[in-house]
Design a protein around this nucleic acid. Structure first.
Lengths: 258, 258
DNA sequence: CGCTAAATGGTAAAATTTACCAAATAGAAA
DNA sequence: TTTCTATTTGGTAAATTTTACCATTTAGCG
């Protein structure tokens, strides 16, 4: 079966393999060198940008489904994934704003109007993180485009996707000090300057360059190595690694205040 | 239509009014006088305790649906509600562990086996809070029982409901200092001792009786009134109220660390 | 009028965060 | 070789916040 046939079959019979009325939308954050971006797509038949999304196979857990959706666009397996909020309500997707008549004229969408896809759907929000310099976005044949957009220049998105981005970013920021987020964005060995830039960029604010290492050391999240890296004409910085045990412990303790 | 007929119709045609494959389960926390409890039910036809739950009407937002589900059991409108996590996966509800053959012999469940209810369902977790001394649990006709259980004596529950309780409690605790949780559990005017007991009970640990007021005052969450309450043979304590504006502000600021 | 139990003001020590100064240093340029 | 530059990093003082506890106040009771 070729891709088009496969998609026609998805429209007609997808409800047999996937759970109807439930989808997953992913905010895929990409970080590299002081820049934080997210992945947005223009979908075939829709006029505007939206988050990568998809349905849950009946045999999959939600995490597995999210993982598959993310892999389709980034071609990276096993990205760090986190569920952050579920979105619903009768006004989430306004079908009257989608020109179904026009869409149905495109051969693949022939049977869309009467399909299981045209019904109220709740969306489970996940966020993922990766180094955007390592991944080449894949539009696939469903999307006309798939590109990285700077987090501070996100245009108006389709459906409730702007709200999703906002909530995902809030969650990402609140979890930065106890989830292994940075571990997924830096190499095994990294310098203080690198992790400092990462934290500043994700949190969107300045962190004192001399106090930041003390905080990380105090929290015990990173360990200084007895190695340095050669960085050209300046003093060679020490290398550090993550203390994975500490992250794990911080995670178990939870976020309970006081 | 009587209640039984109505339920038979729900089994047969409910998918027209409700969104299939999606339900809401609620951890309803009840607090009173140093005790924290949750509401558990024994459902007709099932052997064990579980959380109050229900489906989402196609015309409702998720919050409205959760509100309705909570109202059915507590007969209280407008309880404080919070979505905390969504649960899914093929192993959530093990239909083979439910004796459908036996169940189908009960007249109301006649058409259950082939109904829209017997299919994989993801559950959106909400928690609610109330003063359990003010509400009389309503089993309704679907449940054989509906009672308050102490949070530290929760038995083994059906499905993944123990996990749900655990996550809900974690969320409740983490939100206690910036969500108006206590406002929903104390009268308009309250004493330091009362709110102190509330915080200790929900967080499950001791908080120094002299430092606690200072913390609350520092956060600006409560305001001292120029009134006292007569409490018998001891010094009359001052009354306090919540500073609702501050809570609102704390909420907007989010939980971002550092 | 003293007694009791609860409420609360106060304060010192400990812990943590914030703000900067100044020294160390690797390679490039003079 | 020496000087220069940009960066890394040790250190420290001040400010803020948390923690631990002592001592005083007070309402009603016997």
């Amino acid at each position: 079966m070729n891709a088009l046939k496969e998609f026609e079959d998805f429209i007609e019979n997808g409800y047999k393999t996937y759970i109807p009325h439930v989808c997953i939308d992913c905010v895929i954050f990409g970080y590299h060198d002081h820049r934080l971006k997210i992945l947005l797509s223009e979908l075939e038949g829709l006029n505007g940008l939206c988050l990568p999304g998809g349905y849950i196979k009946r045999t999959d857990t939600m995490d597995e489904a999210a993982s598959r959706i993310v892999e389709e666009r980034t071609s990276i397996k096993g990205l760090y994934l986190q569920q952050y909020k579920t979105f619903g309500g009768p006004d989430r997707v306004k079908f009257n704003e989608i020109d179904l008549d026009k869409l149905t004229k495109v051969p693949v969408f022939k049977k869309l109007k009467s399909s299981w896809l045209i019904d109220q759907t709740i969306s489970i929000g996940y966020y993922a993180i990766t180094d955007f310099s390592l991944s080449k976005p894949q539009p696939g044949f469903m999307a006309r485009s798939c590109d990285w957009y700077n987090i501070d220049k996100i245009p108006s998105l389709l459906f409730d996707h702007n709200q999703m981005v906002k909530n995902a970013l809030q969650t990402l920021r609140s979890q930065l000090y106890y989830q292994p987020i940075a571990q997924n964005l830096l190499p095994e060995k990294f310098t203080l300057t690198e992790i400092h830039a990462l934290y500043e960029t994700i949190l969107g604010k300045k962190l004192d360059i001399r106090n930041f290492p003390k905080k990380m050391a105090f929290l015990g999240l990173i360990t200084k190595l007895n190695e340095k890296r050669n960085i050209g004409p300046h003093r060679a910085p020490f290398l550090y690694t993550f203390n994975k045990k500490k992250y794990k412990k911080a995670l178990e303790l939870g976020v309970t205040l006081s």
